[in-house]
Computed example of a mutant assay.
Amino acid sequence: MSKPTASSKRFSMIALGLLFLAGIGFVWGVDFAIKTTNTTEFCTSCHTMKTNFAEYQESLHYKNTSGVQATCADCHVPKKLGPKLVTKIVAAKDVYHELMGTIDTPEKFEARRWHLANMVWKRMEASDSRECRSCHDFANMDLSEQTRSARSRHSAAEDKGQTCIECHKGVAHTEPTEPEATETVTSDAS
């Protein structure tokens, strides 16, 4: 076995250094992309999200007595990296459908709203309303400060292991009306 030459060692070190720098650049790029796409400005830059943004502005998640505001990402994007990346990849379909004209007008969006909302609700139920619970947790609720009805429902929901979204579907956006059974919903904006 021959000994590595000085020039081959130097080449290996340069290659390793370039690979290291490329890795840093990749991580920085992914971090920049995630932070940029997590802003409310980015989320509402598509024409179809203007309706959702107007609804959100009328909700307690936007403006309330405490001054605490939940952004689009707080409710729709997981905090942990793995689920966050999956969510970003899945959300790319919304950009695709905006560009392809499937949901690019308020009328087209409204026609798809029930289907789109159900996809979000199913994801939230599957994650046990993970994003809701990053701010709202049964253990941190002061039930004595809630109305009798809310206190009773939250206590029962905790006992049954229910997720937040099972009861709170129209919190920050208008809850869509289920289409008539005779209407067919195509899956072109899935």
Results as ranks from 00 to 15, higher is better:
Glu98Pro: 05
Ala54Ile: 03
Thr5Asn: 07
Ala70Phe: 12
Ala172Thr: 14
Gln146His: 10
Asn38Phe: 05
Leu85Pro: 15
Lys169Ser: 05
Thr37Phe: 11
Ser12Ile: 00
Ala111Lys: 11
Thr177Arg: 14
Val171Pro: 00
Trp28Ser: 10
Ile24Gly: 11
Met119Asp: 11
Met49Phe: 09
Tyr96Asp: 09
Gly101Pro: 06
Phe53Ala: 03
Asp159Ala: 02
Lys108Val: 04
Met49Ile: 02
Phe109His: 10
Phe11Leu: 13
Ser66Cys: 06
Val171Trp: 04
Arg10Thr: 13
Phe53Gln: 03
Asp128Asn: 11
Ala33Gln: 15
Ala172Tyr: 02
Ala22Cys: 08
Ala189Asn: 15
Gly29Phe: 11
Ala91Trp: 09
Asp159Phe: 11
Val68Asp: 14
Pro83Ile: 01
Arg133Gly: 04
Val77Glu: 13
Ser149Val: 12
Ala73Val: 08
Cys164Leu: 06
Gly82Ser: 12
Trp121Lys: 02
Tyr96Trp: 11
Lys160Pro: 08
Ser8Gln: 14
Ile103Val: 12
Asp159Leu: 06
Met100Tyr: 06
Cys164Ser: 02
Ala117Ser: 07
Ala189Tyr: 14
Thr5Gly: 04
Glu41Pro: 08
Leu16Lys: 04
Ser8Glu: 14
Ala92Arg: 07
Gly161Ala: 08
Glu180Thr: 13
Cys135Tyr: 12
Cys46Leu: 13
Leu116Pro: 07
Thr5Tyr: 11
Ala70Gln: 12
Gly29Ser: 12
His154Asp: 08
Asp188Asn: 12
Lys63Glu: 00
Arg113Val: 00
Tyr56Thr: 07
Glu58Val: 05
Ala6Arg: 08
Ile14Phe: 10
Ile103Trp: 01
Tyr56Glu: 03
Ile14Thr: 13
Trp114Pro: 09
Cys167Ser: 06
Met100Cys: 03
Leu85Ser: 14
His97Tyr: 12
Ala157Cys: 06
Cys164Tyr: 09
Ala181Tyr: 11
Ala6Met: 08
Lys50Ile: 06
Lys169Tyr: 04
Glu180Lys: 13
Glu131Val: 07
Glu110Cys: 00
Thr182Ser: 08
Ala181Arg: 12
Glu166Leu: 03
Asp142His: 07
Ser12Thr: 10
Leu81Thr: 12
Asp104Glu: 05
Gly67Val: 15
Leu116Tyr: 12
His76Phe: 06
Thr39Ser: 04
Glu158Tyr: 14
Leu60Trp: 03
Ser134His: 10
Lys108Gln: 06
Phe32His: 13
Lys63Arg: 14
Thr147Leu: 13
Lys88Met: 03
Lys84Asp: 00
Ala189Cys: 09
Lys35Leu: 02
Glu110Trp: 00
Lys88Cys: 02
Ala15Pro: 03
Met100Arg: 02
Thr174Gly: 01
His173Leu: 08
Asp74Tyr: 08
Tyr62Leu: 01
Pro78Cys: 00
Leu19Tyr: 04
Gln162Trp: 15
Arg10Leu: 11
Glu41Gln: 09
Val68Leu: 04
Phe32Ile: 00
Glu145Tyr: 00
Val95Asn: 01
Thr65Leu: 00
Gln57Met: 08
Pro106Asn: 07
Leu143Val: 12
Ser66Glu: 09
Ser7Gln: 09
Val120Gly: 05
Met124Thr: 06
Lys80Leu: 01
Lys122Ile: 10
Ala150Leu: 09
Ala33Glu: 14
Gly25Lys: 09
Val185Met: 14
Ala111Arg: 10
Ala117Asp: 00
His173Phe: 11
Gly67Thr: 15
Glu41Asp: 14
Thr177Glu: 06
Ala117Cys: 07
Val120Tyr: 08
Ala156His: 13
Thr147His: 14
Thr5Met: 04
Ser12Leu: 04
Pro4Lys: 07
